[in-house]
């Protein structure tokens, strides 16, 4: 009896404490202790709630951060302790899933791969980090964008193995040299950093964009694949590789270090010289 009464009382304590903590909608509650060595950083986020806002607005939060923190930690701090209505995507938080692509200080990066120490203002000045949604895709809310146009372009280049021959009874073997030919473009995680950093894509959404071309490249130069011609035909059109202006934004943005512009140039070369 006594034990259950105590547990009931403690449960009640928990709920009241929980209610006390939820000061902002959906957030976890009062702020955690600030770690030693933390500095206060202004996180300036471009917010847009399509239900209430006519247009996007900037909102700043003061967030304590260690230099070794990632930008994603700052967003977590805002969402969990300051304003639970902040909306963004993230999944693995380790640069593998490609969910948290955003514009950080004006360049496309994965929030989970950028460290605070690399964004600190020099000379003891206060640091402001601006975070915007990736450009060129419709914003659903805050940092959350509609990725469908991006994936539509991806699907349109047939990003899967096509082989018209008899299916082998064992795996399709390939020499190390043949594998090396498209090794760089196998690293793509479809985060959309490259496509949404491309000025051509910003103004003309029907352009396939760097990511789709990278994924076409991955199969065009695969010795086991037989549909290089089909993909080259698709990319030879007005929305294909000839739209690329070689501004190298995509190569700079890629969190996986793929030489995106080089891959696009290789597709152009394959079209020009009919050599795969």
């Amino acid at each position: 009896m006594t034990a259950s009464a105590t547990s009931a009382a403690s449960a009640q304590d928990n709920t009241s404490a929980g209610q006390d903590k939820t000061n902002a909608a959906g957030s976890r509650g009062s702020q955690p202790p600030v770690p030693e060595g933390a500095i206060t950083i202004t996180v300036k986020i471009r917010r847009f709630n399509t239900e209430f806002d006519d247009e996007p607005r900037w909102e700043s939060f003061q967030v304590p951060a260690l230099p070794t923190d990632r930008v994603l930690n700052l967003l977590h701090h805002v969402k969990w302790y300051l304003d639970g209505t902040l909306t963004f995507r993230r999944s693995c938080a380790h640069g593998i899933c490609g969910s948290d692509a955003m514009r950080i200080n004006g360049v496309n990066r994965l929030a989970c791969k950028v460290l605070v120490k690399d964004l600190l203002a020099g000379g003891g000045k206060a640091t402001t980090i601006t975070i915007e949604p990736i450009k060129g895709l419709p914003v659903h809310k805050d940092l959350l964008v509609d990725m469908e146009p991006f994936f539509e372009a991806f699907r349109a280049v047939k990003p899967y193995l096509i082989n018209y021959g008899q299916e082998p009874t064992r795996e399709r073997i390939q020499s190390a040299a043949d594998r090396e030919r498209f090794d760089d473009t196998t690293k793509c995680i479809l985060c959309a950093c490259c496509t949404t950093s491309c000025p051509v894509y910003w103004t003309e959404g029907s352009y396939f964009g760097p990511a789709a071309i990278v994924n076409a490249h991955r199969f065009i130069f695969d010795s086991r694949d037989e549909a290089a011609e089909e993909r080259l035909d698709i990319l030879n059109d007005v929305d294909g590789v000839w739209r690329c202006r070689t501004t190298f934004n995509c190569t700079d943005a890629c969190p996986r270090g793929i030489q995106v512009t080089k891959a696009i140039q290789e597709v152009k070369r394959a079209l020009l010289f009919k050599r795969v």
Partner: peptide
């Protein structure tokens, strides 16, 4: 795709 080489 229009399958012509105009853009090329």
């Amino acid at each position: 795709a229009r399958r012509n080489n105009f853009e090329l």
